[in-house]
């Protein structure tokens, strides 16, 4: 059984790229448009969350905090998608409980590398 991954990004093209890459590698992927959408789609089947930081409604940091605050998801790995300019955001993400980090732009191999690393 393949793991289910939730990808959260307000950019449709990024979501599609992530979905496409992960599905090719055999993962099941759920897409969410922003943090709020993600929280409604967070089922127990989800084993990893890949989230952008800057999103309307609920941003990435808020999403991580919400995930960590919920006993059902508090140990769920969350990898943040970010651009290189957001140094302070990284620290904020880390403090909020992000598991790891992937810098945009990334290629499919890098994405799979991170996913494999976190999911084992």
């Amino acid at each position: 059984m393949s793991a289910t991954i939730l990808t959260v990004d307000d950019s449709k093209s990024i979501r599609q790229m992530v979905s496409f890459t992960l599905q090719q590698a055999g993962y099941t992927v759920i897409e969410a448009e922003d943090g709020q959408d993600a929280l409604t789609k967070l089922t127990p089947a989800v084993k990893l969350v890949l989230s952008d930081l800057n999103m309307p409604n609920l941003d990435g940091i808020g999403l991580i905090k919400a995930i960590r605050a919920n006993p059902a998801t508090k140990f769920l790995p969350v990898v943040m998608l970010t651009t290189e300019s957001q140094g302070d955001k990284k620290q904020e993400g880390r403090a909020a409980g992000a598991t790891g980090w992937i810098v945009k732009p990334f290629n499919p191999d890098q994405l799979l590398g991170v996913v494999k690393k976190v999911l084992g």
């Binding site: 970010t82 302070d88 990284k90 620290q91 790891g100 980090w101 992937i102 890098q110 590398g113």
Partner: peptide, 10 residues
């Protein structure tokens, strides 16, 4: 950085 995915490097 080389790996393309990062660490808390700050």
């Amino acid at each position: 950085e080389d790996l393309g995915y990062g660490l808390f490097d700050d």
